[in-house]
């Protein structure tokens, strides 16, 4: 077969060969164009968050910061025009947007977001791994039914839960309180599934050895099993933190009524022009940068786990 096919490869016409030669160039062009379309909006967002307001509208494409740094946007009570702070693709950075967004209470939103996201993340690490371990390793009556039910909950669309969850939280007196957002989200089906998959891959002998030593199941779990699960726990931590950090719908319904508990996405959506506010571009671009920055840092530090987590979710779907 191979001997028959090989000469055929040699017979390829010059046109086909030329096309083959060109494929990488076309491929690179397409990929670089696509990559630019993904990066440029973020670069421009960062650049414009550091501009004075008139410059944001008049010269949005200026992206190179040049000295003098941190110019004042008001000079003698008059707002400086765009041409005074930009030229061509360069601009003089200013902190107007950041000052204005912190005046709008961004510090508080940042604290709330971090607190809620950390709480949800830590509780999920605990409860999801406990449940995942039970499903993977402990035989008990109802084991399979419970697993089916948990998988089934993954199919319930979040929007369907919007109204009844609001009703239940209202009945429990948990609306407009940290507990109302943290408690319902402190365990999730995806996390349980992820941990179950991981624990199934650990060799049985380790627990058998533990049992011979007479260790209690809980002690064994926390001392021996959980430390082995660091990679899976890291992926789960990242996904939980990201989901909670960026959550909008639940936060809107549960915390919308109490300004002191607003998170970054909720606060930003308010800057967008709710309650008669006008759009101040550099202000909400600055808010967007601050909201994205912690996630970006985590992403670059733990990239591998993001990709792994996506692959796990692919597994869950099959």
């Amino acid at each position: 077969m191979a001997a028959e096919a090989l000469p055929r490869l040699g017979e390829v016409s010059p046109v086909v060969r030329l096309v083959r030669r060109l494929v990488p160039y076309v491929g690179y062009t397409l990929l670089i164009t696509a990559a630019l379309s993904q990066i440029v909006p973020f670069v421009l967002t960062v650049a414009n968050s550091f501009k004075c307001l008139p410059a944001v509208s008049a010269a949005p494409i200026a992206f190179l910061p040049t000295p003098p740094f941190f110019v004042e946007c008001q000079a003698d009570g008059v707002t400086r025009s765009a041409s005074e702070t930009t030229s061509g693709i360069t601009f003089n950075p200013a902190l107007e947007g950041y000052q204005s967004v912190f005046e709008a209470n961004l510090g508080r939103w940042l604290f709330n977001t971090a607190f809620i996201a950390l709480a949800i993340m830590l509780l999920r690490l605990l409860f999801d791994s406990l449940a995942g371990y039970a499903l993977a390793r402990i035989r008990f009556p109802g084991n399979r039914i419970i697993f089916t039910i948990i998988l089934g909950t993954m199919m319930i669309p979040g929007v369907v839960l919007l109204i009844p969850r609001f009703i239940i939280l209202k009945q429990l007196g948990m609306l407009n309180a940290y507990s109302g957002i943290i408690i319902p989200l402190m365990a999730d089906a995806f996390g349980i599934f992820l941990m179950k998959q991981f624990f199934e891959s650990i060799p049985n002998e380790i627990e058998e050895a533990g049992q011979v030593d007479g260790a209690n199941r809980f002690i064994m779990f926390f001392r021996i099993i959980l430390p082995m699960a660091t990679p899976a726990l890291t992926a789960l931590a990242i996904f939980s933190f990201q989901g909670a950090w960026n959550n909008f719908l639940d936060v809107l319904i549960v915390l919308g009524g109490n300004q002191d508990l607003w998170t970054l996405p909720l606060g930003l959506s308010f800057l967008r022009g709710g309650s008669g506010r006008t759009l101040i571009w550099n202000e909400f671009l600055a808010g967007s940068v601050i909201t994205t920055l912690p996630m970006a840092i985590i992403f670059f530090a733990f990239q591998r786990y993001f990709v792994e987590g996506v692959n796990y979710s692919g597994l869950a779907g099959q």
Binding site: L130, A131, Y133, A134, L161, P164, I168, P184
Partner: peptide
């Protein structure tokens, strides 16, 4: 092991449904 997670999912996913 399983009840904390299951109770949460039950109260905030299945009951709401």
């Amino acid at each position: 092991f399983i009840s904390p997670a299951f109770i949460i999912l039950f109260v905030f996913l299945i009951v709401p449904m």
